[in-house]
Design a binder for these strands. Structure first.
Lengths: 287, 287
DNA sequence: AACTTATCACGAAAATAATTTGCAAGGATC
DNA sequence: GATCCTTGCAAATTATTTTCGTGATAAGTT
């Protein structure tokens, strides 16, 4: 699929010469994408045929195919090997943040559990009422985001970041309702409690959280979001961007599921907005 | 710098044969990155040398350099030319959303006004009080995000998505305060009013919005966020991801500006959280 | 223990394929 | 009609792959 995963998997089984080639890829990637097979071979102290064999080994047709694959994944998939921003220069900070965000999306995409997300979309589409829970700044944003996205399709959603309210709402929920909760850490004890309560009443629960975490274990359907380590805890945005994208995918699937109803509601919302603004209908739905 | 910008710029000056090559790149990009120079030449109905010349024209050393460049930018920078998701299959929907999000980040990075963003960070760092305004679901999220990020550095921030409150707060603001507002459409009339009011009192105003829009014109410092067309108005997330990344960059710069103070506050917040949870201190700051 | 035999990694050289260069013909433009 | 640009042809160059053979290591055999 992509070279770097393959490299990771195959690493152990590589021969000494091949290992030297792999090292060059990891250490001097810029050189590797621009080099010809001969230059690469020389630098790795191997013969060109060995390079060709290496390419085949990691799943490419040929050396040129290999270079294309390399260049393609590297743009997003590779840079996270780069540690912290080089300097405090705004350009570097920006570059660093953008790269990490793109990388978070890349990793999310790779690890996405489509079956779970489809199942979740299915449940949400049929829900008579949806409760979106989350706390702590990040997850509360995801909860409002769920509300913001789903009400547009004519679904009934209420978001809450208030533990007590969450419990009361869950207690009042019926089996035709759905509770969906987000927890970046997976250790939001109050959310676990709400999920357990829901389970007693037969209310379906969906969690957007780390796999195998307490929150995940308490939910019926888990949409796992596991990003590799290295996310600076003081800079949560890249993780959050991954969550947002997951919500986006979920909401889009829900929209497709309930197409006609969603279209009508969206059109009405849009008419309101256009009338309110200056008649420009190419603008986003919601400022 | 990257091929697609060059292509955009050069497009008009290309000869007929070169135009045919360019068309293939745009229409059948997958073919183009995998093809050899001969295959590409055949498909474009030109001779291989013409392809080589074309590569030079768009700023590459050679054909292979060209392919690397192509593969490199294309992964994120190109796919937005692809219209809608190919199908409703979850995998396609996910791929489409991730690609668009990455692309939004790519475009943001390219068009970022670093000078403006640095100036904004400067003002925010020194502000005695910060008001973060935004409405409409998307921008209100950005406003809370600003609050969520900046309070962690020990700054005094209050976010509001309520027009009347925004006006009252602005009226009460002092010249040492800063008003920062977000508007995706740039046409939030109430925000324009708040900005104008602030200007009368000498309060600095910062806008995160489309360049040259009414909101932008009303602000002292504009951090323009202009993403190319083609963002489905029913799916605002990719635009919002760009805004979030912009906020992230802004907040990081502010953090660097006020380093010691920020570090102290962050540490205290973290202690609270760790004590409250199970002592695991590698988790994100805020769930 | 010594001797096959098989297997594999690897490089040299040959064969093949791809890419570039030089040059000339055909058009367009002034 | 002169000039410039575009383009393709063919040769030259360069890059890549294949083939084949060597040497090393491991496994089996006497």
């Amino acid at each position: 699929m992509d070279i770097f995963s393959t490299l990771q998997e195959e690493k152990a089984r590589l021969s000494p010469s091949e290992t030297r080639i792999a090292d060059i890829l990891l250490n001097d990637f810029e050189f590797a994408v621009n080099a010809s097979i001969i230059e690469l071979a020389e630098k790795a102290d191997v013969s060109p045929p060995t390079v060709t064999r290496f390419c085949r080994r990691v799943g490419c047709e040929s050396f040129s195919d290999f270079k294309v694959q390399l260049a393609r994944t590297a743009y997003v998939g590779m840079r996270y090997l780069r540690p912290e921003p080089k300097s405090r220069d705004p350009a570097d900070v920006a570059q660093d943040i953008i790269t990490k965000a793109q990388n978070a999306l890349f990793l999310l995409h790779r690890s996405l559990d489509l079956v779970a997300i489809e199942k979740a979309a299915e449940k949400l589409s049929r829900a008579e009422m949806i409760y979106a829970f989350g706390s702590g700044g990040n997850s509360s944003m995801i909860a409002s985001e769920l509300q913001n996205r789903l009400f547009r399709f004519g679904l009934h959603v209420i978001a809450s970041s208030d533990h007590s309210m969450q419990l009361m709402m869950t207690a009042a929920a019926k089996p035709t309702h759905v509770v969906i909760g987000s927890s970046f850490s997976g250790r939001n004890g109050e959310l676990v409690r709400a999920f357990s309560l829901a389970r007693e009443t037969g209310v379906t629960t969906i969690a957007l959280t780390q796999a195998d975490s307490p929150v995940a274990k308490a939910a019926d359907i888990v949409v796992p979001i596991d990003l590799a380590e290295g996310n600076n805890i003081f800079r949560p945005t890249s993780t959050r961007i991954a969550y947002l994208a997951a919500v986006d995918i979920l909401a889009s699937l829900v929209a497709y599921n309930i197409q006609p109803q969603a279209a009508v509601t969206l059109r009405r919302i849009k008419q309101q907005l256009v009338a309110h603004r200056d008649g420009d209908d190419r603008q986003l739905l919601g400022d």
